[in-house]
Amino acid sequence: MADRHGKVAAPQHVLLVDSEPARAALLEQALKDAGYTVDKQVHGDRSLARLVAESQPDMIIIDIDAPDRDVLEQMTQLSRSNPRPVVMYADEDDTAFVEQAIQSGVSAYVANGMRPDRVKATLSVAVARFREFQNLRQELDHARTELADRKLIEKAKGLIMTHRGVNEDDAYRALRKMAMDRSCRLSDVARNVIDIFDITQE
């Protein structure tokens, strides 16, 4: 692998700590594709201090909400006796970039000697993957809600059909009219209808 100056750079070693296995896998692949070697921890069952000592990473990428982060803060203080990671947020000119990282849930620590441009490139990869994961999860949540909504509407329709002796189209129209009159969501009306039938049946 050649860097900007045409010199061959040794592969950088990244320690990835993330309790979200799918997200960690996504980022691990992206980092490997970019030529990094990666150690990954997705379960917090091993001491982070020991893991760092064993892994000797050039950079640690860790979920911003990991409780273990404070452990790394201590390690940044021990550099007198041992070359340890230092906190990443040194690039003070670029607060917008760091804000973005924090917002997407990335925090990072780098070892002394890792070049700032490499740090930023790696962090960009992490931020992009964390965002991708965030979007995926949102889409999934959205799809789940939609499916649940559709089930509710079907059930409400069925109840109206049996109890009022109307056909499917009329039942649906009745629901839609109620939603429009009350300016609320169709699924909310459906939920109300189901609740009311539940009560009247008791």
């Binding site: 909400d65 990991a66 982060r69 803060e73 917002q103």
Partner: peptide
């Protein structure tokens, strides 16, 4: 609710 003091600090100084 934040999981660490590092997180409190970072989110505060970067306006989150």
């Amino acid at each position: 609710r934040e999981a660490s003091w590092s997180s409190i600090r970072d989110k505060l100084v970067f306006g989150l």
